[in-house]
Amino acid sequence: MGIRFSLAAVVALVLAVFLGIKAAGLTYFFGVCVPYAAILAFVGGVVYKVLKWRRSPVPFRIATTAGQQKSLPWIKQDRLENPVTKKEVVGRMLLEVFLFRSLFRNTKFQMDQGPKLYYQWEKWLWLAGLLFHYAFFIILVRHLRFFTNSLPFFVEPLERLDGFLQVGLPGVYITDALFIVAVTYLFIRRIVIPQMRYMSLPADYFPLLLLLTIGVTGIMTRYFTKVDLLKVKQLAMSLVTFNPIVPEGIGVIFFIHLFLVSILLAYFPFSKLMHAGGVFLSPTRNQPNDSRIVRHINPWNYPVKVHTYAEYEDHFREKMVEAGLPVEKELPAEATTPQAGKE
């Protein structure tokens, strides 16, 4: 169900641009209005989401992360898995963001031969996830050549490294292949593994299909149905210098690519893709485990009216003494002990 819905959504989007450009000639709409709206939605949406998230306090530390917490001096602390200082927390966060440390712990578990449980390493998800994200990132950075007058210094080595196979012209980029392979794996994984399929929703299939289509249209643009890159660059530059013009005669395949990217951007902050921002705010990643070192006060505690025992006794001391109940502080008048009156 979810697959069909997501597929239909992506096909409908592609058809919408195709007809919009071919039949209605809406190049300005799809070349200027939509990208601007999308980038606004993206930046605004991310900022809004982060601010909204951080309006909820997270006062208490999550102590049970995977690693020995700081304890007695002769017990070795796992400083990256269960950090106490800010530096260690940054280390853990870097591991998470750049290497997907948590995903690396992934295990698969199986029942075999009756009630026997087997746990095994399951690293394919981690591998495909990592490859996908790095390929995506490098592709994005390489795309900067459309958006800058002179190539920023870090793009050229990247282009060269990425294209070092020097196969065909325009040369094949390694990241293009990795991107498609990784996204395809991530998609197929959801279909083939029954549990994954059971718990996958349109919101899981849709981003994958969207990314796949973006990748495919990009690759088609580069290697097969060529478009005039100089005009594309002219359009891109006009967008970032706020002087939009749409040159005549850019192939429709480029508009499909651009429109799907716009959809992705606009969809990003309001979907699970927002994990990109969320990872920095995950309590199990960004909190030092210093529950036993620092006092954490719950910020939503309201002032509670308390009546301490000392106050209680002050109130009822005479009556208590009369009734023969023990009191901590004797009555002042006939006080006999020198300590009386001291707490």
Binding site: L144, F147, L230, K231, Q234, V240, T241
Partner: peptide, 14 residues
């Protein structure tokens, strides 16, 4: 980045 990197100037197409 592209906005402040170019400082609002687009090179003319060649």
């Amino acid at each position: 980045f592209p906005i402040w990197f170019n400082l609002g100037k687009a090179a003319p197409p060649p």
